[in-house]
Design a protein around this nucleic acid. Structure first.
Lengths: 146, 146
DNA sequence: GGATCAGTTGACAATCATTTGCAAATCAAC
DNA sequence: GTTGATTTGCAAATGATTGTCAACTGATCC
């Protein structure tokens, strides 16, 4: 028997976190979590479902949605709504960042700006609020200059 | 007979703009446009429909949706998706601004920051993009301080 | 290793927001 | 007023997501 599989170094072990929190780590959940931790794009529920079915034919779309909700509540993933269309999900591990969406290709580029973050906090404070979370999305087109 | 009603000064006359563009200004559209130009909140389609029905009982929700799409394409209104739930609309007249959403009350506070706008443009440029539009929403709670 | 049982699942119906098809109504031009 | 393309209301369709519920299954206890 091979050694028990380990989560790649540097990535948080959500499986362990979940079981520690008294939430059952079932096969479907494990499959979905693996997909989420191994991808670096922003798949929607249907896409996660497609990938999950390739691993375990019996997984249902309902379970994908339920697991997304579970993981979101857990802070393990983030839910996005780029443009219109289905929600898209992203592993919450790693640093916070915002998104630039290429209007022509749909590509999502991640970026981070401490200065913008600071300004946001400043504005919220001035208005008498504490920020719980925010959403910053830039929608643009590649510069023609090329 | 009273003088012909005029659009409040400073607000663009979408009715005129539409007819100039060869788009029919029908009664339902006029009613909906009036609602949009007279409100300063961010109603969703159902809310606009409710208000429209008070003016003209025969207006349908479909027409509200169709008119929203029409006006959006025209740049007359902006479509928002605060949190989850139905899209919410806002008259595009007036200066650009972003939104702070009160997570407890659902209140929407408008704000504007030239510095953030500038930083956004800077970031997009650095990534080789021109911004077509953006979305910045802060979700927060009133400071406990009070 | 097996029994236990609350948590979880898959299948499918239901819901919510939005869009569409179509016949009837309506607007702007003549 | 007549006309003809646009627009409307209605109802049915769609797409994304959630709810229901009987069947299943994973962690715990023996």
């Amino acid at each position: 028997m091979a050694k028990r599989q380990k989560v790649p170094a540097g990535k948080p072990d959500y499986v362990k976190e979940l079981s520690k929190a008294g939430i059952r780590v079932t096969r479907p959940r494990r499959v979905i979590i693996d997909i989420l931790t191994e991808t670096d794009d922003h798949p929607d529920a249907m896409e996660i479902f497609r990938r999950a079915v390739q691993v375990d034919k019996s997984i249902s779309l309902s379970t994908v949605y339920r697991t997304m909700k579970l993981l979101e509540g857990f802070g393990a993933i983030h839910r996005h709504a780029f443009g219109s269309g289905p929600a898209r999900f992203e592993n919450a591990a790693g640093e916070h960042h915002d998104h630039l969406i290429d209007l022509d290709t749909g590509d999502v580029i991640e970026f981070k700006s401490d200065r913008i973050e600071a300004l946001q906090a400043e504005i919220a404070q001035a208005l008498g609020y504490d920020i719980v979370h925010h959403r910053l999305e830039l929608y643009g087109r590649k510069k023609a200059s090329g």
